[in-house]
Amino acid sequence: ITGLLLAASSPAFGNSDGDFQKQFLAQRLAPLEAGKAMGDIADKLIPTMAAPGGDPANLIPASLKSAHQSMSAVPPDSYRAALHALVQFEQRAALPTITVPVLCLAAEHDRTAPPAVMERMAQKIPGARYACLAGAGHLLHYEQPEAFNAELETFLKDMQP
C-alpha cells in the first residue's frame, strides 16, 4: 500500500453495546424483519444519505441511481452482517500508526461521517491531507463525481516521486 483514501469514513462507530448502536441496528434491520426487500430499504435510505436540496418528487435523483442499484443488489444476509460489523468497528488507536500518505475526504452535508469527524481523524494521522467536498452528502462519489475524482487525482499526483 503506497497511499490511502479514507472517504466519508470514521475511525470508530462507538461502543458496540451502547444504546445508540442498539437503536441503529434495530432501525436499520426493522425493514428486513418486516419482509421488505433491499430495494425497498434503498428507496428510503439513499435519499437520507444525500445532500439536502433534491427534488422531493424524485426521491432517487439520476446521480444516485447507481447507488440505489448497488444497495438493492446486496444480499440481505450480507447487509445484516455488515451492520453488525459496523457497530463493532473501533480503530482510533490505529490512526497514528499509519505510515503511508492519506487523503481524508469529507462531504459538507455528510451526517453519517461529518466533516468535523473526518478532520479530527486526519489530524491524528501523521501527514494526512484533509479535504471537504462542497454540496455533497455521504454518497459524495456519486453526488460530486468530478470533484471527488479531482481531489483523488491531485492526491495521487502528489504521491508521485
Rank of each mutant, 00 (worst) to 15 (best):
M38V: 09
M38P: 07
M38C: 09
G39D: 06
G39P: 08
G39F: 08
D40P: 04
D40W: 04
D40F: 05
D40S: 07
I41E: 02
I41P: 01
I41N: 02
I41D: 03
I41M: 02
D43Q: 06
D43H: 01
K44T: 06
K44G: 04
K44H: 05
L45M: 14
L45K: 09
L45T: 14
L45C: 07
I46Q: 02
I46T: 00
P47A: 03
P47V: 02
T48P: 01
M49K: 08
M49E: 13
A50E: 06
A50C: 10
A51I: 00
A51E: 02
A51V: 03
P52H: 02
P52M: 01
P52R: 04
G53Y: 03
G54L: 08
P56D: 13
P56R: 11
P56V: 14
P56N: 12
P56A: 13
P56F: 10
A57V: 07
N58G: 09
L59M: 13
I60N: 05
I60V: 13
I60Q: 08
I60E: 06
P61N: 11
P61F: 12
P61V: 08
S63L: 14
L64Q: 04
L64A: 04
K65R: 15
S66Q: 15
A67H: 01
A67T: 11
H68E: 00
H68M: 02
H68F: 00
H68G: 00
H68I: 02
